[in-house]
């Protein structure tokens, strides 16, 4: 049912991680960040990273959230990082001694031309698969799978044409060197440490938001930011603003849907038409939406006043309680393990 789907990524549960106060978890996250910055300065010192990896794995297991859910939220990040890995690996400042060198490889322009021809053949086959009425290819799943390559193929084809134009005057026998590729200690270490840091911190933040309700998170943050209050910064007002934003996001989403339907029903078209027409249609969506938001804001201000909100008054925290034994226990344990790892 719709009613069970709520916004955000909080997973209800009663694990150790769920029972920790929001503040404890926020502090732990901050501590891990500091720890990683320090660990980064010790090259080839693996103990801190092993500890971090072990702790994050342990965290996921304790939290009771299925590995599948965590993986689903991680895979995009991993893919992006893989793309970034190649330049990092070859990072060198020229002074460190190379770990491994390969190349330079002499490459001929003939080779490039033949590659382009091969690409052309593949492209033709691809287009043919779409156009020719071969019965075994009518399978929908195969089609949609092929369809996914449409957009990247257009870009690759354009790139290939540009390349062809650039090398049009070069004689076929000419060669040029590719490389040498140098992999250094520094490159490997940067890659390794960066990877670990990203993944581990991402997992920890995921665990934080998956095991803490948004409200507890806001309250925890407000309490940790108490020092800012001495600087006369409106920490509590900021917390109230965040709370109201969280509260009204679903309501506003519904409102947008309704407005969209209403304007479509009287002629607005968001998918077709000239730029001018589309701009008009967008105005027809955003102006009423904004008016609605202002009306709500004004109503809410009245309600807040009526319910007795006063700026700067002392407030009771509903979710954040005193730090208990488990909070101090977990904090102490993590600090001991992490600091200890430096001396291994």
């Amino acid at each position: 049912m719709f009613k069970n789907i709520s916004l955000g990524i909080y997973y209800p549960g009663n694990s150790l991680l769920h029972r920790l106060q929001g503040r404890t978890k926020l502090l732990l996250l901050a501590w891990f960040t500091v720890y990683i910055v320090i660990a980064n300065n010790y090259m080839w010192h693996f103990a801190p990273y092993i500890v971090l990896a072990a702790l994050s794995f342990l965290g996921v297991v304790i939290s009771g959230i299925s590995l599948h859910h965590v993986w689903r939220r991680m895979r995009l990040l991993l893919l992006l990082m893989l793309l970034g890995a190649i330049p990092t690996l070859f990072t060198t400042d020229g002074t460190v001694k190379p770990l491994y060198t390969f190349g330079p490889f002499p490459t001929s322009f003939d080779f490039i031309r033949w590659s382009i021809v091969a690409y052309g053949v593949l492209l033709t086959i691809y287009i043919a698969l779409f156009l020719l009425p071969i019965p075994s290819l009518q399978i929908i799943s195969l089609r949609s799978w092929l369809k996914r390559f449409r957009i990247p193929l257009i870009f690759i084809t354009l790139g290939v044409i540009v390349l062809l134009w650039l090398i049009r005057n070069i004689p076929p026998g000419a060669t040029f060197p590719v490389g040498p590729f140098v992999i250094t200690n520094l490159g490997v270490w940067s890659l390794f440490s960066l990877y670990t840091v990203f993944i581990v911190l991402y997992i920890f933040s995921l665990l934080l938001t998956m095991t803490t309700t948004p409200i507890a998170l806001i309250e925890g943050l407000t309490m940790l930011l108490t020092p800012l209050r001495w600087l006369k910064l409106p920490v509590d007002d900021f917390a109230l603003m965040t709370l109201i934003a969280l509260r009204f996001i679903p309501t506003l989403i519904e409102e947008v849907e309704q407005l969209l339907k209403a304007q479509i029903s009287r002629g607005a078209d968001y998918a077709h038409g000239t730029l001018r027409e589309r701009t008009q249609s967008l105005i027809a969506l955003f102006v009423p939406l904004l008016q609605g938001v202002f009306r709500r804001a004004s109503d809410l201000a009245t309600a807040l006043e009526s319910r007795g909100y006063e700026i700067g008054s002392h407030q009771t925290r509903l979710h954040e309680k005193r730090l208990g034994a488990i909070d101090y226990g977990v904090l102490a344990l993590v600090v001991i393990i992490t600091v200890g790892s430096f001396f291994v």
């Binding site: 948004p214 409200i215 109230l240 709370l243 109201i244 969280l246 509260r247 309501t251 709500r296 109503d299 809410l300 009245t302 309600a303 807040l304 009526s306 319910r307």
Partner: peptide
């Protein structure tokens, strides 16, 4: 108030 929505502040 009149509008049932615009007087509820918390998320639960």
């Amino acid at each position: 108030f009149q509008n049932p929505d615009n007087q509820i502040i918390a998320t639960v």
